[in-house]
Design a binder for these strands. Structure first.
Lengths: 241, 241
DNA sequence: GGTACTCTTTGACGGCGATCAAAAAAGAAA
DNA sequence: TTTCTTTTTTGATCGCCGTCAAAGAGTACC
C-alpha cells in the first residue's frame, strides 16, 4: 500500500517544473494546472539528491517540506510497535511527505539513487490557499492514492502468498506501463524483504512463492530485480482470480 | 479499511446543513466552511431514508449523487472476483459515494435504518469549483480517509486473528469516542460476517478469536452487538502490541 | 581477484487458520 | 407460542505459512 505519496502526471522529467514531470505537452494524464500556476510552484522548488539507501526523513520529524520525485525509487514505511512496517513504493512523479499535525507520518528512504524536488511546506500551503484549481489537482492525487491504498488492502485480504505476489507483480507491471517504460520485463528495484513486508508475509514465504511461480513456468527471474511473465494466461488467472 | 466515505465534523444532527451534522457551534472538529458556503450546499441536499439491509447504490452504477449520513450505519464494500469483499463501515457525518470515471467504485448498503443527505453530483461539482475553501475541506476529509485506509492495512498485516480483532474493537471504540457516544460498551452494528470480511479472516476464525478474548476475561459480549472491555491493560497489550 | 558482508534461498517443524460439516442460538414470521 | 430461517458457534482435519537455523548466492570493498 502507498502509505504516502501520490501518483502524478507523466514519467519523464522537466527540469524547471516540479508539478509536471512529464513531457510538457505529450502523454500527460492530468492537465489541471495553468502555466501560471506551474511557474509559481517551480519558483519554490529546490532540486535535491539522495544516494541509495539514504534516509530522506524520519517518521515523527517536524515536517518542513514535501517532495516530488524526478528520478529513482523511494520506499516509504510506517514503523509499528512490533510487526513489520507498512510500506509503499514511490516512483518518478510521485508526491510524498504528507503530514499529520505538522509531523511526517512515515519514514522515507531512497531505494535507488534519487533526484527530487523539495518544496518548503509553508510555500506550498500559501500557494495552495490562493489557487482553487491547485486544490483540485491535489484532490485528484489523493483519490489516486486512496485507490492504491484500497488495492493494497485487497491484496492483503488474499490468504495465499502466491496470489499476493502475483497481484503485486501485476501492479508493478501496470505502474511500468503507466510510466511508458519497456514492459517486456517487470523491474523490481526494492529488495526481497521490502516486498515481503509490503505483502504482509515473511521472507521465506515470499521466496517460496517466487519459486512456486517459477516452477510452474509462469514467470522467470533474471537476477534479483527482473521478472518476466512467461505464461500470461496462467499468471492472470492467479492474479485476478 | 474505509473503501470509501470520509469522516466529517460532529456527531449530532442539524436538519438543514448537510456539511456540518454536528451541533452548529460546539464540538465541531473542522470549521472550514463559511455560513454562506454551508447555505449553498444545504440548498442542493435532499433528505433520504433507507431501511435496514437496503441497497443504496451498486458498484459500477452511474454515479449521480454523493451521500452524507445523518443517522445510522452504512457498510460500503467492493466485490472481488473470488475473495471476500473489502469493506468499510460508515457512521453519521461520513461522506460516501466517491466515484471513478463517473461510476461508483463500491456498493453501499444500510446496516441499520439510515437517514442521509443526498446531493446531486453535478451541483456539488459546480459549487466545489467556485469555492476554494470547500476544496480544502474535501482535502482534509480525503486525508482522514487515507489514514483510515492505512490503519486497515496495518490491521491486515497482523498475522494472528485475535490481534486483528482487538485492533478492530479498539478502532470502533475510538470512533465512538470521537462521536461523543457512551463508551462503557463498544457497539458493533454490523454482523459477524461483515467483521470477518473486514478483518480478512473467515467466520469460524472470527468466532474463535472472540471466544479466546472472552475466555481470557479481557472482554465480555452482551448479545451480538455489544462488547465490554474488562481487562483494559491486557486488551491494549494485544491491540497495540 | 579475493574477501567479507548482506541478501536470499532452502530445510524441518509446529501452530494457526481455512475448510467442510453439523449443531446451536438468535431472529423473523405465522 | 411454534415454526422456519438466518446467523453464529463448535468440532475435526488438512494445508499453508511462521519460525528458527543453516547454507548458498550476490554484492561491495579492499
Amino acid at each position: 500500500m502507498p502509505t504516502n505519496g501520490t501518483r502524478m502526471a507523466g514519467p519523464e522529467i522537466h527540469a524547471t517544473d516540479p508539478w509536471t514531470p512529464g513531457h510538457p505537452k505529450k502523454h500527460v494524464r492530468h492537465q489541471l494546472l495553468s502555466d501560471d500556476e506551474r511557474a509559481q510552484l517551480a519558483k519554490i522548488a529546490a532540486i535535491v539528491r539522495f544516494e541509495k539507501g539514504e534516509r530522506i526523513y524520519n517518521q515523527g520529524d517536524r515536517a518542513d517540506a514535501v517532495f516530488n520525485i524526478i528520478s529513482g525509487v523511494v520506499t516509504a514505511y510506517r514503523m509499528l510497535a512490533d510487526g513489520p512496517p507498512v510500506m509503499s513504493f514511490l516512483y518518478p512523479g510521485d508526491l510524498f511527505g504528507l503530514t499529520e499535525e505538522a509531523r511526517y507520518i512515515n519514514t522515507a528512504r531512497a531505494t535507488t539513487p534519487v533526484i527530487a524536488y523539495k518544496m518548503p511546506l509553508q510555500s506550498v500551503q500559501r500557494i495552495l490557499s490562493s489557487s482553487a484549481s491547485l486544490d483540485v489537482q491535489v484532490i485528484v492525487k489523493l483519490c489516486d492514492e486512496l485507490r492504491q491504498a484500497q488495492h493494497h488492502a485487497v491484496l492483503l485480504t488474499q490468504k495465499r502468498a502466491v496470489k499476493r505476489l502475483a497481484m503485486f507483480l501485476e501492479l508493478q507491471e501496470h505502474l511500468q506501463i503507466a510510466r511508458n517504460e519497456p514492459t517486456s520485463e517487470i523491474y523490481l528495484p526494492m529488495d526481497r524483504s521490502s516486498i515481503a513486508d509490503y505483502l504482509g508475509i515473511t521472507l521465506p514465504a515470499l521466496s517460496r512463492a517466487f519459486r512456486a511461480l517459477v516452477v510452474k513456468k509462469m514467470i522467470a527471474t533474471r537476477g534479483r530485480h527482473h521478472v518476466k511473465v512467461l505464461d500470461r494466461e496462467a499468471f492472470k488467472n492467479i492474479a485476478d482470480a
